[in-house]
Design a protein around this nucleic acid. Structure first.
Lengths: 197, 197, 197, 197
DNA sequence: TATGAATGAGCATTCATTCAT
DNA sequence: CATGAATGAATGCTCATTCAT
């Protein structure tokens, strides 16, 4: 029997490392030598797991975003009200982003390369989340906990764009700047809240 | 007169063209051949004006941002009040950014390359503007036109970060997404306004 | 019985397939992966049967030419005369070549790689045949059925070279061009024939 | 003024050398390093003259065959008769081929790579020559110097195929074998001659 | 000043071959 | 006997940069 290494596991390890390298150096300035070296492999060996550099990048990115927003879809709601719930989700997303800065950075840089496919992917991944936000807001309005002036679609759009901006700030200026976006998001949401007498 | 007079002018022409090329192809995917060709010069000649590719990039960027925020510093104020004045400036900046998307894109991408120097440059260029905003807000509070709850420093920070985010959105997702940031900025500022009985 | 019996058989199977691959892609453009895959084996396993790629090629070629000219050596002669006999043999050789174009192509290409060893091999394989031709011609002269002007050695040489040329034409330009060589060979031989009053 | 080297001349020099290298090693087994080294240039410099390896090969081949058969088209005819004239041309072609073995070898190898374009090119280059042969033979028949049995088209075809075969033999087995083909061609033509009383 | 010529350094990719299991 | 894993050695190609004129 041949030398056995869990192929898929090794694949994931490579992607993990590749992601870091890509995040540090960018796609163009990175090179397979660096990735291979950090994996403790030769450059040629990478080709046993992936067809080419682009492939590595693509899968590294895919792996890093997969399931990123899945967990929010089956949340159990606290009684704190819709605004609080939305903020909680948003905060969690942003905290996750902060914890995975290198992944986010890659994502952002990739979008910058105007990879149309990725833009759509971002949309697809957040579509359900947007739907959730809409439902929460509408419920809130019906229950009188959210200001009836609120243009639901517009607000949801703003939330999403602000979260994106959070990621941008995180990528380009770091956590402090990103924190400002979080503040803005909070102000924005709070201004929609109907104070409960 | 000898040709020498033209030196600086020629330098600027090169930078102008270089900026376009960089904006289109990105720093890495661009090459000096392309720039030289579009300048009607040979590659070697570029080295008579600049030391290397990075130099060209650096100066192209510098040139493109120079004076970007200068004009706001000697503005004459309308009687509409500080909030309105600030929004007017912000809108003008954002409109300018939208008109110069390729420059902005370069700027953003460069920052992404984590060119520390550039990050500082951005700060330096906006420092005076921030000071202006602070003054306007403080005046507004004193005159009772701006809510006294307003944490001036925090708000100014938010303004700046939102304008940055506007540029990011512009670069990565285009004008529609960027417009959402503008809306957020407006909401934010309006919420500080004290309605005049 | 253990699997060992199959070893040589398996070897031949590999060579058979290898020959096809080599004929299709050429030595350089072919690769062991392709051969291994078509054999249903892993690349590494090939090395259990052959030392290296060249070995595989060498033996594939050897196998394909082995016995190519054997059958003519124990032919029973018709009464049609030596010229007719020679032509019959030549036609049969050429027909065989036409039927095994891919083998021939490999052979030709290999010779092109100036594999000295192969050139000699070609000579060795045809030596006996040349001897047979010589005998037939000499008999023919003695019996008055072949023109006495005929320089036996020269003619035999011509026959062989024409058959080789037939293979070249077959390889490079296909059957039609090769057919022309066959015609030439026939004319040549017929011109040696002494018409029997 | 810059360093001036006659660009086209240098180009030709490179092609000259490249041709030799290709003839020795074949297209695949050759590499640009070898060509560059023998040119006294760096690999990168080759790319200032040609776009890629294939280009070098293509032009090397083109250069080598250009005008190969041109000179025969405006020959002045001796009084020796058509057969003699044709043989003289053929001998000259074959002698030229022998003198330019490396060119011929390349040509042959290229055809082997089944470069359709080249096969056509060979045809195009010999088309006028074939026409000339046909005319000579027809004149010969009319004038009673060539046997009236002679199937002109067939004979011309045979001549061409034999010359090709000459080249093949030259490439694969060298001048001695090729000489045999020359002999065959002579016999063939002589057998068409009508002896002048 | 301007530029044709030349190059070194670097990169992605391929593939025959080895080795441990 | 069989094979997955791993790799060294090549190779074509690009490009910023230098140099001599």
């Amino acid at each position: 029997m041949p030398k056995i290494v869990d192929h898929d596991k090794r694949k994931d390890e490579i992607l993990e490392i590749a992601l870091e390298v890509f995040a540090t150096d960018g796609y163009d300035d990175s090179n397979l030598s660096a990735i291979a070296k950090r994996c403790g492999l030769s450059r040629a060996t990478l080709y046993q797991y992936f067809r080419n550099k682009e492939d590595i990048y693509y899968f590294a990115l895919k792996q890093s975003t997969e399931g990123m927003f899945q967990k929010y879809l089956r949340i159990e709601w606290s009684g704190k009200g819709p605004i609080e719930d939305i903020l909680e989700i948003c905060d969690d997303i942003m905290a996750t982003a902060e914890r995975n800065r290198s992944k986010i950075k890659n994502l952002v840089i990739s979008i910058g390369k105007s990879d149309q496919e990725l833009e759509e992917a971002v949309y697809r991944r957040t579509a359900k989340l947007q739907h959730l936000f809409r439902r929460l807001l509408r419920n809130g309005i019906r229950e009188g906990r959210v200001s009836s002036d609120c243009d639901v679609d517009a607000v949801v759009r703003q939330i999403v764009v602000l979260i994106e901006s959070f990621c941008f700030q995180l990528t380009f200026f770091g956590g402090n700047s990103a924190g400002v976006i979080r503040d803005v998001l909070h102000s924005l949401m709070r201004s929609l809240e109907v104070r409960q007498g």
